[in-house]
Design a protein around this nucleic acid. Sequence first.
DNA 1: TATAGACTTAGAATAATTCTAGGTCTAACC
DNA 2: GGTTAGACCTAGAATTATTCTAAGTCTATA
Lengths: 143, 143
Amino acid sequence: MDTPEYPAIDREALTRRLRTHGVTPTSQRLDIARELFEKPAHFSAEDVYERVNGVEAAVSKATIYNTLGLFVAKGLLRQVFVEPGKVIYDTNLDDHDHFYDEDSGTLIDIGSVGIAAAALPPLPSGTALDRVDVIVRIRRSQP
Amino acid sequence: MDTPEYPAIDREALTRRLRTHGVTPTSQRLDIARELFEKPAHFSAEDVYERVNGVEAAVSKATIYNTLGLFVAKGLLRQVFVEPGKVIYDTNLDDHDHFYDEDSGTLIDIGSVGIAAAALPPLPSGTALDRVDVIVRIRRSQP
DNA sequence: TATAGACTTAGAATAATTCTAGGTCTAACC
DNA sequence: GGTTAGACCTAGAATTATTCTAAGTCTATA
């Protein structure tokens, strides 16, 4: 099986991507987007901060958080909650679920487990379904 | 439909319950257990702190956290992660899932959505299934 | 090119949780 | 019944992830 290649995305493409989602493409946002959207991946805010600032740019932590929050609000990113005090940002926007390795803290995309809305009990009145999060927690089995 | 009654649990019963799970029943642990196991419910650590100390006892925050952690490790409680920086403790140990109302922050037990192990992709080698968390996120639908 | 509003920043502030170090309790044994 | 090792509890400090604040900078548009 070939490892897929993810060619560097040029600023034009990123700029379009942000604009399409109603996000004004500032220089900091493009720096962040370049790291995020290179290939499908999972990031903590700290990861993003380190990767963005490891290269050359200098983007403040406040801007990292503001931007990640904005990208989530605009549908460019998804948040996954697996542990207290740690948000993971997922650039894969397809309908999918996750394995979470509790020993290593690794998150792995899996296809959608596919829970039919019909399989759910009736929603409380006055509410609507937002989405269903499925996290399959796994552990290193002792040999 | 009758509202079920949950008679006060006596110390004897609580003591047995803790011992059965390998937890030494100290006075603070019993104070905490009394609040937790009165009826099936969801609590934040802060909720437990307030309820335990609202009555008469004086249990420190460190002990609240230590005890909740111990109860989870010993299988007396379950943790649910719905938002960053907020753990919810669930005294319902039956196999079940949750509605999470994102507008009010309320967690509601629902029956198990029931994902067959066969519905999952193969687990990474060397790992074993711990459990599957399903959170059905709902929102107040605007009228 | 003036300007309003959006954006960014350093650093302070907050919230939830964990750690530390010392004191207290307890259960098992002499 | 007293000793004692180890488990337990505590106040408060420390940590971690995140948000807020206030002031400066940029930018699109008039």
